[in-house]
Amino acid sequence: MRRPLPFRTTLLLAFLLAAGLCLSCSGGNRAGQASQTTLRLSMIPTTDPGKMLRESQPLVDYLQRETGAKVELTIPTNYAAVVEAVGSDQVDIAHFGGFTYVQASARYGVTPLVQRDRDQNFHSVFITQPGSNVNGLADLKGHTFAFGDVNSTSGHLMPEYFMRQSGVDADVIAKAVYTGGHDATALAVSNRKVDAGALDELVFERMTKEGKLAPDSVRVFYTTPAFFDYLWAARKGLDPGLAESFAGALLKLDASKADDKKVLDILSATKYVKASDPDYEKLRQAARDAGLLK
């Protein structure tokens, strides 16, 4: 007896185990029956995840109808957790940013499916205060700079890439802060906590439109060339038929039809196109160069 346990604890553990067995049996059965036909999706939020989840019902309904599978949608807020979830078969199809897709494909070999047409022609905007003397990337030397989340394509990877390309002082990049999100970057600049920052053009548009960002508090001084960003990708080993029907369902959405329009609006999209891995080669190289991908 190397590990004497106090009796009450033993009793408790026994009780716990028994209860656990009962519960897991019932729970296990449910999961077992459903697992063949469940399609687990995960989508990075563009706004309040709770609100998104509530408002995404038409999308879920549409996908259930089209794929014949029971669709479970989760809206995580942590990019890395999505990558790991896909890697450990917790999620079947995920909406990745370009950079997280590259990470996931390097680590877990995911398959690209579809993306919005605008994802193939995406931009980041660089903003600063109206009164500042920064008018181009070259002027950034000696200024403080903010990226968004370290894992963001449009908030970090590509802005950094273009900054390196145009020879911005390495010190600016080394000392840059990571705000953790596009909104926070915009706010940091408008509150003058940093001199300049880079963020997703869509988020910037939305924040200006919704009045979260006073139009006269920031100004765009640089817009990056186009790059590939968000896409839907399937985990390795997912039934190709299921992946196909998911991709097909999104591809055939037509903005001119009222029903389809509702679904497209949830996804902030107008049209879906096929996504392919070679499009991400440049991004991959950028990540490697910056030491962000091994």
Binding site: G20, L23, S24, S88, Q90
Partner: peptide, 23 residues
């Protein structure tokens, strides 16, 4: 407390699946 904790274990998804889920 033990009972409440047990209910909680269920609520956080530890008992129904996670405990015996080899995953």
């Amino acid at each position: 407390l033990a009972f409440a904790a047990l209910c909680s274990l269920y609520a956080v998804g530890f008992l129904n699946g996670a405990l015996l889920d080899e995953g």
